[in-house]
Every structure is written in C-alpha cells, then in structure tokens.
Design a protein around this nucleic acid. Structure first.
Length: 266
DNA sequence: ATGGTTGCTTGGCAA
C-alpha cells in the first residue's frame, strides 16, 4: 500500500511527468498540491486512463489547489476553509486499506511571503494563523484518532537538518523559530508520527524541495524538507518504506518539489 | 547583501 504526496506546481502543465510517475512507481494514492486550476479544468480523464478511477478535487483558478487521486474508492470527502479566506488548501477522504478505513488529510499550508514578521507581512500572519487553526482543529475534532494520515506541502522545515544550513535560514520564512514552534504544536496536537524521520535519522540531511533559482540545484544542493507525511499512533507499526524521489527534480520542466512516498505493510 | 527562476497569464503577483 503506497501513498504519495507531491506539490506539482500546475497539474495541467506537468501531467506527462505525473503519468510517468504513476506508470513507474504505481502508488495506490496520490495527493497533489498546487494544482493551480479550477475543478472543471482538472485532467480527471488522464488519471482515469492511468487506472486511477477516483479523483476528488478542491481547486481554484491560478493558485493553490489540492486533490486526491486513488485506485480505490474515496468517501466522506471534506474540504475545509481554514482562516475563512476561500483558499483551496485542504481536502480529505476516507479510503479502505488493509481491511479497515483510513482518513487521509491533504494540505497546502500558506508559504508566508518573504518577510518573517506578522506585523508588516499579512501573508506571514496568515501562515501563522493557519497553523494555529490546524492545531486547534486536530485537537478538538480528534483528527489523529484511529487510522489517520496528514500529508502535504506544509511549507516549513522544522528540524536543523531539514535545511541545507540551519544558521543561514533562521530568518528565512520556512525555518524561523516561530514557524517551527507552531508546526511542532500541530504535531503534538495529534501525537503524530513524523513518518519521514522514522526512516532517516534527525542528524541526516533530508530535503523534498530545491529552489528554481539555483544555477545548478543538484550541485549546490540547497534544499529544504517542506513536504511531510504524518501518521497517527495507530499506524506507526505499519510504516514499511520511504521513498523521496530526488531524481524527479532533474526531470524535464520539473516541479520544485519531488514526490514523497510512504509504504504501509499489509 | 543581493538576485536568482517558474507559473498563471500578458502585468505583476505568488512561490
């Protein structure tokens, strides 16, 4: 049972890459972020033709947008509007895996702009408020109870070795102490297990995103771990394998994020 | 310190 999360940065533009990924890696479920199109423009037929008959979408024109694509049926679809801005940043569904239901939440957390100061940068304030609302909702609605998973582009690299230089990024949005604290509170609110770090020790560098702005992303290797897979305590024992597909960053016209896949045992 | 690239759209944000 394989579940992938991937910030695709325009699903229409990168459908050929997605198709290649699905054909070669064949995850059971693919969670996408930054699809950047309205629901009616989402290439549902392409996914169907690849054997993914179940597609649920929360999209909007031009920005953001999330979707879950699955071989198996998806039910109890929910789309939450965090911060009441009308942004398409969350979708969830229940799916049957290994003889029981799993609730899957797919998120695209606000990037937060450039200036890490909530008083002068409304986008940063939005990001912090979004994280507070996530924390409260996870706690109040017991989101991590039973078999649950929260994946997506959370736009924060919480650990020292989730960035190429801890020191250089302390004042860079995605790795500031206030963001890290708020994401950690999200983790604590559900007693989530950080699935990627179950497979790669905290002392080792681990990235899922490399900026488009580098002259040579691979040579400089200045990445960040912005994409996450969190699993509830009940699923901790089922974690089997992790794949961060770094080679996808080198594909033709790539996303700046790579697919992250977790495998759960049967 | 600064600027670097990409996508959605065609001027300028957002990331």
């Amino acid at each position: 049972m394989k579940i992938t999360t991937w910030n695709i940065n325009s699903v229409r533009l990168r459908m050929p890459l997605v198709a290649h990924f699905l054909k070669t890696r064949a995850p059971d479920i693919l969670c996408l972020q930054e699809t950047k199109c309205r629901d009616a423009e989402f290439p549902v037929r392409d996914f169907n033709a690849l054997g993914y008959r179940n597609v649920v979408i929360n999209g909007q024109k031009g920005y953001h947008g999330v979707a879950i694509v699955s071989k198996n049926p998806l039910r109890l679809i929910d789309k939450r509007d965090f911060c009441e801005k009308g942004d398409a940043r969350h979708i969830s569904a229940e799916v049957e895996i290994n003889g029981g239901p799993l609730t899957l939440h797919n998120f695209y957390v606000p990037a937060g702009g450039d200036e890490p100061d909530r008083d002068i940068n409304p986008k940063f304030a939005h990001k912090l408020d979004f994280l507070d609302e996530m924390r409260d909702w996870i706690k109040k609605d017991k989101i991590a109870k039973g078999r649950a998973m929260l994946v997506g582009d959370l736009n924060i690299a919480p650990l020292e070795h989730d960035v190429w230089s801890h020191k250089a990024l302390l004042k860079v949005v995605s790795h500031t102490p206030v963001e890290v604290e708020k994401l950690t509170a999200v983790f604590r609110a559900g007693k989530w297990i950080d699935a990627l770090r179950r497979f790669v020790p905290a002392e080792e560098k681990l990235y899922t995103w490399w900026s488009y702005r580098a002259a040579d992303w691979a040579a400089s290797d200045r990445g960040r771990r912005l994409d996450h897979i969190l699993v509830s305590e009940e699923l901790g024992g089922a974690l089997k394998r992790l794949e961060v597909l770094k080679e996808a960053r080198g594909w033709e016209r790539p996303s700046d994020h790579v697919p992250v896949t977790i495998e759960l045992s049967e």
